[in-house]
């Protein structure tokens, strides 16, 4: 299988979603009652990029976000940026974003014709929680010399927030499919 060349329009989608994910850092975090862990809007970016742009463009746009972070732009939540971010123990989650976008995108592409709120939520959850934590937790364990179990425990508090984000992603993905679909349309048809 030879991938289609990246068109101008693809590049624009990739760049704009990278910018959008960066802009999500500006939204104030919401704190869930009872749990007390702040939910940042930004980590919804990878799920959204996959669900709206599909696997390849979604993953590339998140890769671009990471590249912009690496060159020093303070575009992660809390104004973090620079190569230092990639030296910290949570780097696995950051790199995992790319996989999240890819998997969420791939699942949305495969299930595109019969996409429902529930299936979209399931796709976002698989990519945005299962895949992300499968990468983030082992890296955290290695970087911080923790056992996998201890690292997992440290991450549990974030799961409710991630579920909320997966649900929001599903609502948005279904609405965008109706209003302005990108996946599943051939380029060059609209004007």
């Amino acid at each position: 299988m030879s991938p289609q060349p990246i068109s101008t329009r693809d590049i624009v989608y990739i760049a704009l979603f990278a910018a959008l994910t960066a802009a999500l850092a500006l939204f104030p975090p919401i704190t869930l009652p009872l749990i007390g862990v702040p939910i940042t809007a930004q980590s919804m970016g990878p799920m959204l990029a996959g669900a709206i742009l599909g696997a390849r463009r979604g993953a590339l746009s998140i890769l671009l976000v990471l590249a912009l972070v690496a060159i020093g732009l303070p575009i992660l939540s809390g104004g973090r940026g620079g190569l230092g971010v990639f030296a910290g123990p949570t780097v696995g989650f950051l790199l995992g974003w790319v996989a999240t976008a890819y998997v969420v995108g791939l699942l949305h592409e495969l299930g595109w014709n019969k996409l429902t709120l529930f299936s979209s939520f399931a796709h976002a959850m698989i990519g945005g929680i299962i895949v992300l934590y499968a990468i983030g937790i082992p890296v955290l364990a290695v970087q911080a010399s923790l056992s996998i179990k201890a690292a997992t425990m440290a991450c549990l508090a974030f799961i409710p927030g991630d579920l909320v984000k997966a649900a929001l992603t599903a609502v948005i993905a279904v609405a965008i499919k109706r209003a302005h679909p990108i996946i599943g349309t051939r380029r060059g048809q609209t004007a």
Partner: peptide
């Protein structure tokens, strides 16, 4: 501050703008 009321219109605008931007790049390149 409903996150949906914020994100949805923003994303739709971004997607619409993307088409115009791609056209402009093609027209100028």
């Amino acid at each position: 501050h409903s996150p949906l009321a914020l994100a949805l219109p923003l994303i739709v605008r971004v997607l619409k703008a993307a088409e115009d931007i791609a056209d402009a790049i093609d027209a100028r390149s």
